[in-house]
Design a protein around this nucleic acid. Structure first.
Lengths: 150, 150
DNA sequence: GGTGAGAACGATAACGATTCTCATTACCAT
DNA sequence: ATGGTAATGAGAATCGTTATCGTTCTCACC
């Protein structure tokens, strides 16, 4: 698929939305970056940089691996994607919402779901205080079985 | 230092304790593994495999890098050490208690402290249930500033 | 519609952490 | 002692990621 030449109204809307995502963060909305965003949007779970690159190639994108890494680093820096390191060594990327959130991981099918309601700030602050720390951020990962894999 | 030839009573006690840790897990207490355990015990924060190897060399241990990796993998598999992936790309290892716990990380000096009281099981179960998951485990990392770095 | 400066890009080399291979050595039951 | 198995060290191989560099694209300005 050629980015920039949407064939349906919905595609056009999605394209504009993705452009907006980038521009709001002060990042140029280049064709390559839009391709990466589009591919991320297509995947509801998380993907590695290499997987993403492979999928882009299947779609006849000429994107280079380095560009995929650069783009993912940029997007994560801007808070557009989450980076998960639950696979040993290899990092996984996932399009995510702006707000603070955590993740549920299915240990069988590797589905990833965002948990929007955090509500742990108090607990975190208390646990930190108990050891003389002041908490600035926290990460929570819940691993389990999703509805389909139970 | 030569493992196996303790010079003080306390050293002997520690040596026996470390042997016990390994044997209780069904792992042979070889000299190399005891060296790795000893080096881990000496460090209150977390270390990378390479750092650990470097320190062993400084102590004139002939341990190979591969052995350090093998031993750390074995120990983490047996639940004797925690593996943290808060550095990009590089894994950090840390001797830990048997019980379920979480970690406080100082973002400035990289000190690591265990939080023994979890108390999140209910919250975790509820968050999981809300999305149709059944939680089997969870990880929490709190990042902040420790008492000394505030 | 050029044009020039700087950003983005692709190909590939480089890098660094980790794992693999294999010949040698240590351990342990017999 | 001895034979079988596990552990080890050295170095090669692997693999994810990052750096380099020459080319191409983008966009504000003319």
């Amino acid at each position: 698929m050629i980015v920039g030449v949407p064939t349906r109204e919905q595609d056009l809307a999605e394209l504009l939305e993705r452009k907006g995502v980038l521009e709001r963060k002060g990042v140029r909305a280049t064709p390559r970056r839009l391709e990466v965003l589009e591919e991320l949007a297509r995947e509801s779970d998380d993907v590695t940089a290499q997987q993403l690159w492979g999928r882009l190639r299947e779609r006849d994108s000429g994107a280079g691996l380095a560009t995929v890494y650069r783009t993912l680093a940029l997007l994560s820096e801007k808070g557009v994607v989450d980076v998960l390191s639950h696979h040993g060594g290899e990092q996984c990327y996932r399009l995510c919402g702006d707000a603070h959130h955590h993740h549920l991981l299915c240990e069988k099918c590797h589905r990833v779901v965002e948990v929007q309601e955090c509500g742990l700030d108090e607990w975190v602050a208390a646990a930190a205080k108990q050891h003389g720390f002041v908490a600035t951020e926290h990460r929570v990962e819940i691993v389990g079985l999703c509805a389909d894999c139970r």
